[in-house]
Structures are given as C-alpha cells and as structure tokens.
Design a protein around this nucleic acid. Sequence first.
DNA 1: ACGGTCCGTTGAAACCTTTCAATCTAGGAG
DNA 2: CTCCTAGATTGAAAGGTTTCAACGGACCGT
Lengths: 336, 336
Amino acid sequence: MPRSSVKDVAAAAGVSLGTVSNVLNRPDRVSPATRARVEQAMADLGFVRNESARQLRAGTSRTLAYVLLDATNPFFTDVAAGIEERAEAADLSLFMCNSSNSAAREKGYLDHLAEQRVQGILVTPVDPESPTLDEVIQRGIPLVVVDRTRSRPGVCSVSVDDELGGRLAVEHLVDRGHQRVAYVGGPATIGQVRDRWVGAVGAWRETGLPEADLVQMATAALTVEEGRRAGERMLGLPTRRRPTAAFCANDLLALGLLQHLITSGRRVPEDLAIVGYDDIDFAAAAAVPLSSVRQPRQLLGARAAELLLDETANPAHQHERVVFTPELVARTSTLG
Amino acid sequence: MPRSSVKDVAAAAGVSLGTVSNVLNRPDRVSPATRARVEQAMADLGFVRNESARQLRAGTSRTLAYVLLDATNPFFTDVAAGIEERAEAADLSLFMCNSSNSAAREKGYLDHLAEQRVQGILVTPVDPESPTLDEVIQRGIPLVVVDRTRSRPGVCSVSVDDELGGRLAVEHLVDRGHQRVAYVGGPATIGQVRDRWVGAVGAWRETGLPEADLVQMATAALTVEEGRRAGERMLGLPTRRRPTAAFCANDLLALGLLQHLITSGRRVPEDLAIVGYDDIDFAAAAAVPLSSVRQPRQLLGARAAELLLDETANPAHQHERVVFTPELVARTSTLG
DNA sequence: ACGGTCCGTTGAAACCTTTCAATCTAGGAG
DNA sequence: CTCCTAGATTGAAAGGTTTCAACGGACCGT
C-alpha cells in the first residue's frame, strides 16, 4: 500500500530529494550519517524505486530479453542459461519470451520490448530475414540473432554451422554402412530444418549413392509427438523401401521416433540407426543412448550475450558473425 | 536512431500533442482525417511509444511475469505455456525469469519486477514461506504462488497435492508386490521433495510393512545427472538390501536412474521398477516408458493466471487456494 | 583573520506520456 | 439569423526519477 516516492523519503529523512537520489545512485557522495538516515527512512516507508521513472529520465534500462522459439525445447533453455550467466555478471536481468514458433507472437514481444526500451534483445527468430527484426534495429535497440544468421549484415549473429552438422550426421551413417537413409524433419519453413537437410544432401552426393536413397520424411513440427508419428510411417513402409537409418532434425523428433520403434518391438540400431540433433541431456539419457550432433549450447548463449553487451557499451562496436562448429557424438543408437 | 516522441509526431502532423495521445489510446475520439494524418506521421518518424513514460503517467503496466525454479525442467515450461495462453487472451505479455533454484536470484528478479511495477507476478518460489514474497505483496503487487502453497493466507496459490502424489506412487508399487522401496530425491530444502516423501511414508505405514524398508536416497539436485548417480549407488548396494522399486521425486531423476540401470545391463521393471513424478513428455518417450505421477501442468498455469487476473481486475477479489489432484499413469517401468 | 578548496547538499529542469477541463467548430433547431 | 449541442481539438498539469549547476560550510595554509 505505501506507494511512497523519493519525495516522501526525503521528507521523512529531512533531506532534499536530490540527496535521496544520490543515496540510490552514488552512495559515496553522501556522508555516512545522512546516508544511514535516508536508508532508514526508505526501509520505514517500504520505498521501492519506480523503474519507469528512472528509465524515463536516465534513458537506460537494466534488462536484457531473449525471445526464443520454443521454451519447451531444452536446447533453447540451455542457450538461455548461457545468456543469463553473462547477463548476471553484468548485473542485468534477463527476461525470456516464448514466441512458440509464431511470427505474430514474436512481433508482439519485440514491439513490447522496444516500447519498454530494454537495453538489448537476443532473438532466435522464426525468420531471420523478417523485416520485423529490422524495425527493432532501426529503433536503435541492439539486437543479436542467436542460432541463426542473416544474409544482410547490420546485426551480430551467433550460430552453429547447421549444414556442417547435417554433413557430419550423414557421413557418420554412411561410414557405418548405411545405404538408405531418411531425413526426418519439418516444416521446411524452419531454417534449421532446411540447412541441416542441405548439409545432408551435400554429404550424400559425395558418396555417390543413388540420390533417391536419401529420403525426406516431413513432419509438422519438431516435437516428440511428431517423432512418434514419423515412426509409424516409417514402419508402415515396405521392408525393401525402408531406410536402415534416420537422421532427425532435432532430438525431440529422434526421441519420439526411438520410442515408437522400441515399443513396436524393433531394435535400435539393428533395425534402424538414429542420429538426432542438439544433444540435449535427454539424448544421452535415453535408454538407447542417442547419437546426436552436439552444439555448444551454453557457449552459444554466452557469446551472444557478450556481443550484445559489447554493442551496448562500446561505441566502436563492429557487428560480428560468429559460427561455431558442431560435433558428432556417437552413442549406441548408431553403434549398436 | 530517430528517437522521436509524441511531440515530434504532433509537430509533423500539425496537431496538438494531446491529439496524438488520443490517436494512440482512444482512436474513436479523433476524426478519421486527422487520425490518418497522425498515423502517417508516426510511420514516417518511426515513432515508438515510450512505455516507461506511459506507465509512469498511467500507473498501469501490460506485463505479467513468471519466476520459475528451473527453466530446463520441461514441467515448468509447460506450466508457463498454460500461463501464457491466458495472458495472451488478456492482451498481456509474459516475461519468464529463471531463478535456477537460487533464493538470491529469485529475490533479484522479484525486486526488479517490483521496481518495474509489473501488473502481477506468478512465482514458483524456492521457499514459499520466505519473507521475500511478503515484501512483494506489501508493495501492492498481485502475486500468485504456483505449484506450492503457503501456510499463511493473504495470497492465492495453485498447487497439486504432492502428498497425495507420493501416496499414489507408493500404493501403486506396493500393489505391484514390492516390499522394499527407495525414495530418490533431494535436497530436502525443496518443498516438493519433502511433501512427496511425507505422502510416501504415510502410504507405507498403512501397509504395515517394516518402516525401515522404505529407504531414502538423497540427491543433490533434481536433475538427470543426479539420477544417474543415484543409479550407481543403487547398484552398489548388496543384493539383499537393494530395493526392488524406486519412487523418484521427479522425472529427470527417474530418467537418469533408468538410463544407468539399462546401460548397466539391468532390466526395468524386472530388476528395479521405477515411478517418476510430473509426467513430462520425455517420460512417455523413454524407451522403457516411465510410470509417473501426472500433474495437470497447463491447467495449473492457466488457473494461476486466471486468479492473478482476477486479483488485478476485481476489487472484490478473494484469495483462493486451489489444489489439484494428481493421477498415477502406469506404464512399462512398473508394469513389465 | 582571510582566501581558497573541497565535500555535502540543494532545487529546479528535464524525460515523455496521459488526462481532463476548457476551447473551438460545425451544423441543426428554433 | 441566433442559439445550442455534440463532437473534435487543445494546453497545461501531473507522474517519480536523475542530473547538474550552484550553494554553503568546514577546514587548511598563510
């Protein structure tokens, strides 16, 4: 209830309003005696600084935001953990916003954050080329694209080479002797899904195997549930045409697929080898530990946060395009 | 760059500043012609309303926040999805903050949110009795406790009966013939861990089995990694003393435990039956589908959001304490 | 005792929006 | 032709903080 302001505190402590502000922002400039008095008054009145007013006057905010694609995917929350670590070190708060893969929601959040004049925004966008991002930048808000890149420059980005990841997965499977492989993923509107496919195709071509033997299995989303569905379809194929291995666009799909196979009495990797993508904790924890393309998730977030902080603090900031290298982690699901 | 304000827009459109504000807030009160002119000017200048100033004057904010315990646990992000659904319907933005089980971080976020004068806060607190929460309430910010309850009233809470959940798990295991059961969970500072234990003990006593045969296996955290460690310890026990079933305080532990057993060549449930808690998507997706105590996660969040919205909008708001009933979902990990 | 420093404190201006009473305009009624 | 009304527009005040130039007093050296 006691909606008290600096003015009230000043009155209670018998000092001027400017002094209260000094206690708040430059405690060293105020004598210990008065400082104590003011602090006492603040405690008595239950004073809470009004951040809106502070921000209005000071023009600067103490918060960062990460707009992510899917909060229920552990990959993104791990990235967020990396961001948060750096944010905390810089004494900034991090707000996470979940766009749930919806461009409209994403725009809503970005607008709101822009109005709120946050210090900076990290975003894993639905579409990295979308003008929505340009709007934010034009409004003068530092922005870093995470886990994607942008063809036009003018923005920092931190990503992992998804094409390379796709290559690694397919090369691994071919090394293990597979000659008919499925790529499970979709919808194609998702950039990661496309890039990993491109890498997979590239690697496949170099093997000289018939192009038709790298088969696409489209899914409606990158979820466990969709993975199960893909499993049903997979087992529905006649044995001759059935792939001996699957490369899934992310681990959620892979886990769903894995589950469906096991509960249908098939064996992994004997009946179907599986490679996932992201190497989330649940991949290693699956009862048939999942081979997966590992991305440096925490590092991804941390580096992105560093770039963002540099952009806000350093006038000579240069936009950077950081690309990390993925790594294949081979486990039982392909090694048997 | 064009850090433009209402004043600039007004000048550009040749109207007064109040009119611009009307366009923004009560478009119906302004004639179509001028409205068009103003909107054009806003577009030309790239005007973005300054939310801080708006909030300072209007005293009201358009955002809700959810401070959660562990963003990497799918349970909480599912709860968040339920909240968000309701928030979006009320045209409010939801910011998620991850306390990572740290009371200090939690306090940091709550303070920040209070300064920001958010419209309301939902929180799954590290400690629901903590005075930190009282501070927020005293500052006049509506707050709802999620997935926990509070002994003192004065606050809405939405939770699931964790004691009952503990009972259900143990009763199920006893029904299946187990006479020596482990409770895997910790640290005991976490309320859920304690409550589920209390329920487990209660159910155990009623069976008349020797009290010593319900054994506690303490873990350092509720993570997959800790689950694996618990598995090591479990297999380290002499066969005579080894439990035939384990009830884990959450699914992450259960999945880790499951994995360790399988990779050590044991069979689930023959060698050890396992019940988890939360029924996250990965539980059903585990290669040995996990029996688990299901909580209505989305509903939990949705109901909490409703209570919060009622508190902000309805002067006659009564604090409510909603307790949902959990449900045991039996799968292969206990049924064989 | 005097001038000069330095530290602590002050008060007013500025930040940008919303609100509301007051003013203006056009058009209809008498 | 005048008066009234309803609707559109205006202008100033208010909201809480930070900033900064200015001020006052204490202390030092001479």
